[in-house]
C-alpha cells in the first residue's frame, strides 16, 4: 500500500494513522493554494536564512570599512551595497533575519498562551471572572498598540529584549477576545454538555475540548498579526527604542539609511524590502492557514 493511500484510508487502524491522515488532508487543502504556499516558502526561507546566517553572510555584519562607505549594490563584492559606515548590507540583512525571527518567535510564545488562557477561562466561566478578565483586557485595548509599546520601552529602557516584552504586553488582548468569543459559542454545544454529564472537571473540558477548537483561530490570527509585530519591532528600532547599534535590526537599518534616501537609496530600501517580503509571507501563510483550520468552513 502506498503512503498516500495509507494516509487517506477511510477507516484508520490507529490513533497515529488517524491523526496523520487528518494532517495530510489539511496539507492537501493547504498545498492547493498557491498564495499560501508562497507565504510558507517565504517564512521557511526566513528560518533557513536565519539558521545559516554565518554561512550566507559575505562579511561581518558589524565590521566597518570607512573607505568603502555607501558603495552601490553589486560593486566591490558588496551585493546589496554598503551603508554609511561601510558595513555590508547583505550580511547585515542576513544577520538581521535572526533578530526578526527571534522577535516573532518570542512574542508568539509569550502572547498566544496568555491570550488563549485568559479568553478561554473568561468565556467558559462567565460571571464575575469574565467581567474582571475582560475589563483588564479592555484597559490594554484602549491604547493604540505602538503608543503603549513606546510607553513600556520608555519605562523599561531601550533594547531588543524590552521591545519584545513591550510588544508582548500590548499584543495579547485581541487573542483573549477571539478566544473568549469562540469559547462562548462552544460552551453551549451538546458535546460540552455530554462531557459535563460524564463528570468532567472544568479544567478537563477547557483543556481537552475548548482549547483545541479555539487554538486554530488564535493560530491564524497570530500568523496574520506577525506582519504587524515585525512592523512594530521595526518601528521601535527606527525610533531608536528597539535594537541598539550596531545590531543589524531591519528597522534600525532603515533609520540609519534615511539620511541618504535620495542619493544612496539602497541603504534604506534593502531592509525595507526585506520587511515587506517577510510581512507579506506571514500574511499569505495566515490566510492559507485560515482556509485549512477554520472548522466552520469544513
Amino acid at each position: 500500500m502506498s503512503l498516500t493511500a495509507w494516509l487517506l484510508e477511510e477507516a484508520p487502524r490507529s490513533r497515529l494513522q488517524a491523526r496523520l491522515g487528518q494532517g495530510y488532508a489539511g496539507w492537501r487543502l493547504f498545498s492547493r493554494n498557491p498564495l499560501a504556499m508562497a507565504g510558507l516558502a517565504i517564512v521557511a526561507g526566513l528560518v533557513l536564512v536565519a539558521a545559516a546566517a554565518p554561512l550566507l553572510a559575505t562579511h561581518s555584519p558589524v565590521a566597518q570599512d570607512l573607505a568603502a562607505r555607501l558603495t552601490p549594490p553589486g560593486a566591490a563584492g558588496h551585493w546589496l551595497g554598503t551603508d554609511d559606515l561601510g558595513r555590508d548590507i547583505w550580511s547585515r540583512l542576513v544577520h538581521g533575519a535572526r533578530i526578526t525571527l527571534a522577535v516573532v518567535a518570542l512574542t508568539m510564545v509569550l502572547v498566544a498562551p496568555v491570550g488563549l488562557a485568559v479568553g478561554c477561562v473568561a468565556g467558559y466561566r462567565g460571571g464575575w471572572v469574565d467581567a474582571v478578565l475582560m475589563r483588564v483586557t479592555d484597559v490594554f485595548l484602549a491604547f493604540p498598540r505602538l503608543i503603549l509599546a513606546l510607553a513600556f520601552v520608555a519605562a523599561l529602557g531601550p533594547g531588543i529584549e524590552n521591545a519584545v516584552i513591550a510588544i508582548a504586553v500590548t499584543s495579547w488582548p485581541p487573542y483573549a477576545r477571539i478566544a473568549r468569543a469562540e469559547t462562548m459559542t462552544i460552551r453551549n454545544s451538546d458535546f460540552i454538555a455530554a462531557a459535563r454529564l460524564q463528570g468532567a472537571s472544568a479544567a478537563r473540558i477547557l483543556w481537552g475540548h475548548v482549547v483545541p477548537l479555539t487554538l486554530s483561530s488564535v493560530i491564524v490570527r497570530v500568523t496574520l498579526d506577525m506582519a504587524g509585530i515585525i512592523l512594530i519591532a521595526a518601528g521601535l528600532g527606527f525610533l531608536g527604542l528597539g535594537a541598539q547599534p550596531p545590531s543589524p535590526e531591519w528597522g534600525a537599518m532603515i533609520a540609519g539609511g534615511r539620511k541618504y534616501i535620495l542619493d544612496q537609496w539602497w541603504v534604506a530600501a534593502m531592509p525595507g524590502v526585506a520587511i515587506c517580503v517577510v510581512s507579506l509571507g506571514f500574511n499569505l501563510l495566515g490566510d492559507g492557514l485560515r482556509d485549512v483550520l477554520d472548522p466552520k468552513q469544513r
Binding site: 490513533r15 488517524a18 454545544s189 451538546d190 458535546f191 454538555a193 455530554a194 462531557a195 454529564l197 460524564q198 463528570g199 468532567a200 478537563r204 481537552g208 475540548h209 483545541p212 477548537l213 472548522p295
Partner: peptide, 29 residues
C-alpha cells in the same frame, strides 16, 4: 445517569476521534 442528545452533529466533538470520544468517559470515571 447518561444522556443522548437530539443533534448528532452537535453532540460529538469535531476534533476528537471516535476512540477519544469513547475513551474520555472511561478515563473520567
Amino acid at each position: 445517569v447518561q444522556m443522548v442528545f437530539q443533534d448528532p452533529y452537535g453532540s460529538l466533538h469535531p476534533r476528537h476521534t471516535v476512540d477519544r470520544i469513547l475513551a474520555e468517559p472511561v478515563a473520567i470515571q
